[in-house]
Design a protein around this nucleic acid. Structure first.
Lengths: 218, 218
DNA sequence: GTCGCCAAGATTGTTGCCAATTATGGCGCC
DNA sequence: GGCGCCATAATTGGCAACAATCTTGGCGAC
C-alpha cells in the first residue's frame, strides 16, 4: 500500500501538471480509488498538502485545489529565488563533469525547443534544468522546502513562457546561470539565478495587472 | 475535536520545547490520549511532521524525534538566514509605531535577562524577537516555510546561547537589527539579520567540531 | 554462561462503519 | 416560470476493531 507521503507526492504532481484544476474539489473516495489506496491515506496526504498551502480545506466541505493571486505568486517566487539562489551557489561549488554534461544537455534541449517554437516543451525542460541544479546542490533543507513550495503550481497557473519575448530572454538567463555554474563561480551563479527568477516575478506581476483576464484563464 | 493541523502544532511545540527528546519514540496511542484526540488525527499530524523532517518514520516501527548533526543544523540555519532576511527587509518597509514599540520592548527584556545572567530566559525572548519580525513582515509564504523549518528544534539541540561570550554578541546583533528596522532601512535589516544568523551558524559549527561532546548532550 | 528460538505483548497499518454536515434535486407555492 | 422548502444523496469527520509487523522476555540447547 502507498504511504501518505507517496500519495501526497502523486497529488502534488497532479495539481502541478494541471490534472487537477485550480478550485477543483478533491473527493477523498475518488482519489482513493484512482490512486489505489484507502481514504485514511488520502486524508493524511491532503492534510500535508493543506500545510503546504497547495489545497484549501473547509470544514465538512472537503478540499479544493488552491488558486493563487498574482501577489501570492510573486511572494512564492520571491522565496523560491532565495532558495534556488542558495542551491545555485552550492551547485557551482560542487558540480562535476557529469553534472556539467547533464546541465548542458538540458540547456541544449531548451534551445532547440525554443527555436522550434514549442513553448510547452521548452517549459518542461526549463523545469528539469532547475531540478537538476537542486539535485547537484545536494542541500536537503533547501530541497525539501522547494519541494513543498507551490512554485510549480504557480508555474502552471501563470504561464509566463507564453508572454511575447519571454522565451528568448528566459533562455539567455538560463545560459548565464549555466556559465556561472561551469565556471564554479558560486556568487555569480546565485546572482544569475536570483535575477532570472526576479524576471519571472516581474512577468507574473505584469500578467496579474492586466485587469480583465483572471489568472486561471492562462 | 482537534484538527490534524492543530495537533501537528502541539507536537511541534513539544519537540521544540524538549518535552519530546531527540530519538524518543512517539507512540500514536499515547499521543492520542495525551492530546485528547484519536489515533487517526495523530497519524495525520505525524505524517506532516515527517514531511517537515522533524521526525523520522520507519515502516511498522513508528516515528522517532529526529536529532540533527551539526552539518544539518548549519544547513537549516543557512536557509533560515535567507528567509528571515527576507522577512526583515519586508518588516523594515512595513513597520509602524505599534510594531516598533513591541520590538523595543522585546529587546529591552532581552537586555535585562542577559544582564541578569538568565540565559534561558534570554533565549525565550530571543525567539519572540524573531517571531515578532516575521509577524510584522506579513509574508505568508516565508512565514509558513519558517514555521515548517526545524530551526526551533535545532535551537533546542544546540544551545548556542550557553557558549561563552555568545549572549553579549547576540544582544548586540539584535540591537543592530532593531536599529535597521526602526530606520526603515530594508537592505540594512536584511544584512543585519543574515549576519546575525550567520554567526549562529558559526557557533553551531564550532560546537559540532568539539569531538567528544555529542550534540544532544546540550 | 551464551546463543538462538518461540510465544506473548505492544504498536502500527488497514478497513469498515456510523454520525454529522453539506450538496442536490424534486415538489409545491406564489 | 421562478423561488423556496424538504427529502435524499453525497461527502466528510470520527471511531473502533482487525490484521500485520515488530519487540520483548523466557526457555531450552549447546
Amino acid at each position: 500500500m502507498r504511504s501518505a507521503a507517496e500519495v501526497a507526492g502523486l497529488l502534488r504532481d497532479g495539481i502541478v501538471s494541471g490534472k487537477y484544476a485550480p478550485n477543483e474539489r478533491l473527493i477523498e473516495l475518488d482519489l482513493a480509488r484512482d490512486l489505489q489506496t484507502n481514504r485514511a491515506v488520502v486524508r493524511g496526504a491532503l492534510t500535508q498538502l493543506e500545510a503546504q498551502r497547495l489545497v484549501i480545506r473547509e470544514p465538512n466541505r472537503g478540499v479544493r485545489v488552491r488558486s493563487y493571486t498574482a501577489e501570492e505568486a510573486a511572494e512564492i517566487l520571491e522565496t523560491r529565488a532565495l532558495l534556488e539562489g542558495l542551491a545555485a551557489r552550492r551547485a557551482a561549488e560542487r558540480i562535476d563533469a557529469a553534472g556539467e554534461h547533464a546541465l548542458r544537455a538540458v540547456v541544449a534541449a531548451m534551445r532547440e525547443r525554443q527555436a522550434a517554437g514549442d513553448l510547452l516543451g521548452y517549459s518542461e525542460h526549463n523545469a528539469r534544468f532547475h531540478r537538476t541544479i537542486i539535485e547537484i546542490a545536494a542541500h536537503r533543507t533547501a530541497s525539501s522546502l522547494l519541494a513543498a513550495l507551490a512554485s510549480q503550481a504557480v508555474r502552471y497557473q501563470f504561464r509566463t513562457v507564453l508572454e511575447p519575448g519571454r522565451p528568448a530572454r528566459s533562455l539567455a538567463e538560463h545560459e548565464a546561470i549555466l556559465d556561472a555554474l561551469c565556471a564554479h563561480d558560486g556568487a555569480a551563479a546565485e546572482r544569475a539565478m536570483r535575477s532570472h527568477i526576479g524576471n519571472v516575478v516581474a512577468t507574473v506581476r505584469a500578467i496579474g495587472e492586466r485587469p480583465h483576464l483572471t489568472p486561471d484563464m492562462a
